[in-house]
C-alpha cells in the first residue's frame, strides 16, 4: 500500500476513536486534538517515508492502529501519537491529592506534549515514549532512533510474536466497548442503554456475538447465554462502529 492510502485509512478511523473511552483495554493509535490532527498526520507521513526507506512493512487496522514490521525479523511494533504529560508516576500525584485539594506543579509544560510512543506486540511489553519537540523536524533521525530502540529490544526475543496475530483482531472487549458507547450515545431510547447497565454488573463475560438482529452474551460457562434483540437504529450504529459486522438482513422488509 502506498503512503497516501495508509494516511487516509488513519484519517478514516478517526471517527471510531471515541470507542476507546469505553474500552477496558484501549487500542493505540492517533489521539490528538482536532486542531493538531493534521500536524500529527504530517509527522506520521514523514515517519512512514523513513520506515519505508528502511524496508519496513506498515499496516493500519480498522480501528486506526499503526503496525510496523521490521524488515530483518518477524517482529512487529505498534506506534501511537498522543498528548501526554511528562509525569513519571500518576500514582504519586493521586496519593498527594488524598490530603490536599490541589497541587501546584512548577516544572511542567502543558503546551508542548505531543509524544510518539512505540511498543512491541508482546504480552508484557512496555511503551517507550519519544517527545516530538526533542527531534524538531529531523524525521530521519527520529525514525532511526525509533528503529534502534526496537532492534535493541528484539535482540533478546527468541520466540516469534503470537502466531495467530492479524492486523484486524476482534475481541469480546471491543464488542463490550461498542455496547457501552452505544448506550451512552443513543440514550435510554435504545436497548443498548439497558444492556450496558446490565453488563456492568456481570463479573465475567466469556464471549459476545453481535449478528443479524441479536446480541448473544455468553457469561461464565457455556450454555449460560442470553439473547438481546435490537432494531434498525442499533443496526446502523453497529455498521459504523463494529468491525466484521454482518448487517441485518432486510428480507422481511421486502416481503411486507
Amino acid at each position: 500500500m502506498n503512503i497516501q492510502k495508509l494516511i487516509s485509512s488513519v484519517r478514516q478511523a478517526k471517527k471510531l476513536r471515541p470507542l476507546n473511552d469505553f474500552h477496558r483495554a484501549p487500542r493505540s493509535g492517533i489521539d490528538v486534538m482536532t486542531e493538531e490532527f493534521n500536524d500529527a498526520l504530517y509527522l506520521l507521513k514523514e515517519l512512514f517515508k523513513q520506515f519505508k526507506a528502511h524496508g519496513c512493512k506498515i499496516d493500519i487496522s480498522f480501528y486506526g492502529e499503526v503496525f510496523v514490521l521490521l524488515p530483518e525479523s518477524v517482529h512487529r511494533f505498534e506506534l501511537a501519537i498522543s498528548d501526554r504529560p511528562y509525569i513519571k508516576n500518576a500514582k504519586d500525584l493521586l496519593k498527594k491529592l488524598e490530603n490536599v485539594q490541589f497541587l501546584k506543579l512548577d516544572n511542567m509544560d502543558v503546551n508542548n506534549t505531543l509524544t510518539v510512543s512505540i511498543k512491541t506486540i508482546r504480552p508484557r511489553a512496555e511503551w517507550k515514549h519519544f517527545s516530538v519537540s526533542e527531534f524538531k523536524s529531523e524525521y530521519g533521525l527520529f525514525a532511526e532512533s525509533i528503529l534502534k530502540e526496537l532492534r535493541q529490544r528484539v535482540r533478546y526475543y527468541n520466540s516469534p510474536d503470537t502466531n495467530e496475530w492479524t492486523v484486524n483482531h476482534s475481541s469480546a472487549e471491543d464488542k463490550l466497548a461498542v455496547i457501552h458507547f452505544g448506550g451512552a450515545l443513543l440514550g435510554p431510547a435504545s436497548m443498548l442503554y439497558y444492556l450496558s447497565q446490565h453488563l456492568r454488573k456481570v463479573i465475567y463475560v466469556n464471549d459476545l456475538s453481535i449478528n443479524g438482529n441479536q446480541i448473544t452474551v455468553n457469561k461464565s460457562y457455556p450454555g449460560d447465554e442470553t439473547n438481546h434483540y435490537f432494531g434498525k437504529k442499533e443496526d446502523a450504529f453497529f455498521k459504523k462502529y463494529l468491525f466484521d459486522y454482518t448487517a441485518m438482513s432486510h428480507e422481511h422488509d421486502k416481503n411486507n
Binding site: 476507546n20 477496558r24 484501549p26 489521539d31 498522543s82 498528548d83 501526554r84 504529560p85 500518576a90
Partner: peptide, 12 residues
C-alpha cells in the same frame, strides 16, 4: 486537560 491513567495520555 483531562489525564486518563488507563491510556496514559490526555483525552481531548
Amino acid at each position: 486537560n483531562w489525564y486518563f491513567n488507563l491510556t496514559n495520555r490526555y483525552h481531548h
